[in-house]
Simulated assay, not measured.
Amino acid sequence: MTGHNQRVDASRSPATPPPPTPAPVPGRAPRPAAAPAPTRARRLAAPALTLAVAASALGYVATVDPYEPGHYPVCPLFRLTGILCPGCGGLRSAHAFAHGDLLTALGANAMAVAGYFVFAGFMILWLIRAYRGGPTPRLALKPLYWWGIGAVALVFAVVRNLPFGSGLAP
């Protein structure tokens, strides 16, 4: 017999039982509740910090002239062997790039300039995805691509050390 004071849950019909709660597994911690979605400011923190560090480094190279001796260490490979590595001239390239002199930057180290543009493209993609709440871009290349990048760097290093490639030397 039901009384008038009995409450009836309208959201559940009497024929539908409540969902079962999983029984705790001995030795295993219960699952934590789902974390709330990060805010836009939190999503933008990592790419903004990365961009700030890169801009600070470029700003430092822009103000401290690499053409003046004593400010930066000499390339150890160049010092020991006289051979230019793929990175030789990178600081001079960054200095010229920071001052907007793209031709001088390309003359100091063309491969570094290509790297600046790849980095800029990656940062733009990362910032857009972070702003929109999309996945973080990953730099997951197949081994064949890494070998290709290494081969390009090796050819660049060899050619810039040969007489006909002296235009690539810093």
Rank of each mutant, 00 (worst) to 15 (best):
Y67N: 07
V118Y: 03
R7Y: 09
P143N: 10
R40H: 13
F164N: 03
L91R: 11
S166W: 00
R129K: 06
N161P: 01
D9P: 09
S166A: 02
A62C: 04
T81A: 04
A15C: 03
G90F: 03
F117W: 11
T2R: 15
A96Y: 01
T39V: 12
G148Q: 08
A35M: 10
A55K: 11
C75Q: 03
S11N: 13
L44G: 15
G59Q: 10
S93G: 08
A157P: 02
Y131P: 01
G27E: 14
V155P: 03
N109D: 08
P36D: 07
Y116R: 05
P26I: 12
I149P: 05
G150Y: 06
A35H: 10
A10T: 12
A57V: 09
S13K: 08
W147P: 01
H95Y: 15
A110E: 00
A96C: 08
W126Y: 13
S11C: 12
P137H: 04
R43H: 14
N5A: 13
G100A: 10
V152L: 15
G148F: 07
T136K: 06
F97K: 03
R12W: 11
P24F: 10
S11H: 14
L102G: 05
R28Q: 14
F97L: 15
P163C: 02
C75L: 02
V25F: 09
P69I: 04
P76D: 04
A105V: 09
A57Y: 05
A98R: 10
A41Y: 05
A37C: 11
L49H: 05
Q6R: 14
F119V: 12
M1P: 11
P135W: 02
W146V: 15
V152M: 12
C88I: 01
R28C: 07
H4Y: 13
G70I: 02
T81G: 04
Y131K: 05
